[in-house]
Design a protein around this nucleic acid. Sequence first.
DNA 1: TTTTGTCCGACCAATTTGATCGGAGACCTG
DNA 2: CAGGTCTCCGATCAAATTGGTCGGACAAAA
Lengths: 158, 158
Amino acid sequence: MLKLSKKADYGLMALQYIASVQYGDVAQARIINTKEIAEEHHIPVELLAKVLQALAKHGIVESQNGPKGGYLLARNAGTITIAQVLEAIEGPLGIADCYHDKDESACLQREHCNIRTPLRKVQDSIYQLLNNMTVEDMMGGTPLITIQPTTTVEGVER
Amino acid sequence: MLKLSKKADYGLMALQYIASVQYGDVAQARIINTKEIAEEHHIPVELLAKVLQALAKHGIVESQNGPKGGYLLARNAGTITIAQVLEAIEGPLGIADCYHDKDESACLQREHCNIRTPLRKVQDSIYQLLNNMTVEDMMGGTPLITIQPTTTVEGVER
DNA sequence: TTTTGTCCGACCAATTTGATCGGAGACCTG
DNA sequence: CAGGTCTCCGATCAAATTGGTCGGACAAAA
């Protein structure tokens, strides 16, 4: 219940990885291609590519074609929130459709719906929660997480 | 994204309705059958029955068979949290499986998973949020007389 | 005992999700 | 300058979850 999809998982992993390499060591900052991320995290390449496409289309990452190509963050990691990432991958988020849908919503219960108002509070709280966390918070060096500060940037042979 | 299923919606609506009739006016407290709830909210009867079965199996409502039968709350409305309801209907909730799963979890990424720790904070916050709200809190605009002395509006910060 | 109305468990169809394949464009190399 | 290679990109297919349905079992009333 409330479990986020594999695509969302993959997207967050990829963004964390890209941000770590891009912002972790400025000297070794480089473009990262889909294959590298997929092999590093053991996820299917083509599916990850699809996720990165969606992220690129929504202006979260930028794609660079051709050999030595790949992806890089379109803007600073601190300005990319989890909510933005999830919405880019799987559409608008919300525990119910009847809040952002148009009046043609097929919710037959809306006339006698008694849970609409109280649930809205829950949804707003969740949204605020996801919007206060950025991909920067998922990297090392923040008090949010307790990972060893020795983020060893692995030199992948090519 | 993060939308809760129809069954969860139906279950919450039914509980709100049962609680309103059962606690709203003590003089007119009565057993409510599945058909009445379904017709009141325009939802398929058989599906609602299935949801109520799950709630009964988890000790949230009690079933009474035979004519004049139906359902009633198993315990006070203030002690039934949204989290308990959702878990009864759709299993344990969590934005990822790898937290409550056994070591047998098929998550191939857990070795190199970088988002596990930060996402756990999000999950805990959501769980806490759903666990601080009860079906009593959903009885705000009940058409019947409310005799509950304390209306605790649970605010969630950040 | 018969009848009626209810809950209960197993079954089937539809939507969403996960995964895959071939093609188009861009960069490097000779 | 041209060919080859590597990358991203869009459309397509299979699997799993969800939404919905059906007949049987049980209990109370007549």
